[in-house]
């Protein structure tokens, strides 16, 4: 395929960091395919409206729809999204669900150096205890863990914590992860990659 334009529709604005993962994967699978990427910023609350507006205002070849699995199963979330997609589809766009188990932050708990950099303390001597990859999808508190690891790595007295921007930390962590290959051990990521590969192959046939 010559080039790909995609739009990411996510649960929240901090999930924009997922674009680093999407771009890494697309570049890894299709290194010669230039990508144009957009993040849909929309105020609607309901998923069906959001999906409809995403392709209306951010036309693309592929719409990535992100939903955290949280307490539901991958399949349940996938069905939810697909139900709304059927009605919203306009031209010949494809839709690929991204459903991290349990939430987006899970996919960023894979690289110690990235956490140190995000904490603002690149030479931190603090030992960063990341959960084992094999246990990652069962992990109950990925978000709190991510924040805590960053705080610990920062290793400053409480008042100096002002330098720490936890709001944007997901972005900072994601930016500093060069390879997301470790995620291929996670079932939710495997499903995502599989769907992505099939979709792009389908699109190249046209």
């Amino acid at each position: 395929m010559n080039e790909l334009t995609y739009t990411l529709l996510a649960d929240g604005t901090s999930d924009r960091a997922l674009m680093h993962i999407i771009n890494w994967l697309l570049n890894d699978l299709f290194p010669k395919m230039p990508i144009t990427s957009r993040f849909a910023t929309l105020l609607n609350r309901k998923l069906d409206e959001r999906i409809e507006n995403a392709i209306k205002f951010y036309p693309c070849d592929v719409l990535f729809v992100h939903r955290d699995a949280e307490n539901e199963s991958y399949e349940k979330r996938k069905n939810e999204i697909e139900r709304f997609w059927k009605d919203a589809k306009m031209n010949n766009e494809r839709m690929i669900p991204i459903i991290p188990i349990r939430i987006t932050e899970t996919w960023f708990l894979i690289n110690e150096q990235a956490i140190k950099l995000a904490s603002g303390n690149p030479n931190s001597k603090i030992k960063i205890n990341l959960p084992k990859i094999s246990e990652l999808e069962k992990f109950k508190t990925p978000k709190e863990t991510l924040f805590n690891l960053i705080r610990e790595a920062n290793d400053s007295k409480k008042r100096n914590m002002k330098n720490l921007d936890l709001n944007n930390c997901r972005q900072r962590v994601a930016e500093n992860i060069e390879s997301f290959a470790l995620l291929r051990e996670l079932s939710s990521f495997q499903k995502f990659e599989h769907l992505l590969q099939n979709t792009v192959f389908e699109l190249s046939k046209k």
Binding site: T7, R38, A40, T41, L42, A54, K56, F57, Y58, P59
Partner: peptide, 8 residues
């Protein structure tokens, strides 16, 4: 330019 980017 897509409309979404312009509006945002």
């Amino acid at each position: 330019l897509n409309l979404g980017t312009l509006l945002a």
